[in-house]
Deep mutational scan, measured.
Amino acid sequence: SSRTRFTDYQLRVLQDFFDANAYPKDDEFEQLSNLLNLPTRVIVVWFQNARQKARK
């Protein structure tokens, strides 16, 4: 499967949200999905990866 290429804007929004809340609710994932024009699944995985990185 091909990797999603995030724009700088998408990454900034995701990172800002993550800094405020590492565990979004379903409706928040949906809002981010609509805002960033990305599939919810891609955003869910991004947050999983970000939490892994933050733990190191």
Rank of each mutant, 00 (worst) to 15 (best):
W46K: 01
A54Y: 04
V44G: 13
F29E: 03
L36D: 00
R55M: 07
Q10W: 00
N37S: 10
L36V: 13
P24K: 01
T40M: 14
V44T: 11
Q15C: 02
V45C: 14
S1K: 06
S2G: 12
D19S: 05
K53G: 12
F47A: 02
Q48A: 08
Q10M: 07
Y23A: 07
P24C: 02
R55D: 10
V13C: 06
S33W: 01
T7K: 06
P39N: 08
W46V: 01
L32R: 01
L11Y: 04
F18C: 08
S1P: 02
A20H: 10
F6R: 02
R3Q: 15
L35N: 12
N34Y: 08
D19Y: 08
P24F: 03
R55T: 11
T4A: 01
R5E: 15
A22W: 11
R41Y: 09
F6M: 14
N49K: 12
K53T: 12
D19L: 00
F18I: 06
I43Q: 02
R55C: 06
R41Q: 13
L38K: 03
D19P: 02
P39W: 00
L35W: 08
K25S: 09
A54L: 02
Y23V: 10
F6N: 03
L11R: 09
F18D: 01
V44K: 10
F6L: 05
Y23W: 13
D19T: 13
I43A: 03
R3E: 13
P39E: 11
E28K: 04
N21R: 06
L14M: 12
K56G: 11
R3H: 15
L14F: 01
L38A: 05
Q10T: 02
D8M: 07
D27L: 08
Q15W: 07
V44P: 04
V44R: 10
L11Q: 14
F18W: 04
A54R: 03
L35P: 00
Y23E: 14
S33T: 05
F29V: 10
E28A: 07
Q10F: 03
D26G: 06
K25P: 06
R12P: 01
T40V: 10
D27H: 08
W46E: 02
D16R: 11
V13T: 09
F47R: 00
L38H: 00
S2D: 15
D26Q: 07
Q15R: 07
V45D: 14
D27R: 08
V44S: 14
R3N: 15
P24S: 02
E30S: 09
D8H: 06
T40R: 09
D16P: 00
Q15P: 01
N49R: 07
Q10G: 01
T7H: 02
F18R: 03
N37D: 11
N21C: 06
D8S: 09
F29L: 11
L32A: 03
F17R: 14
D16G: 12
R12M: 05
F47K: 00
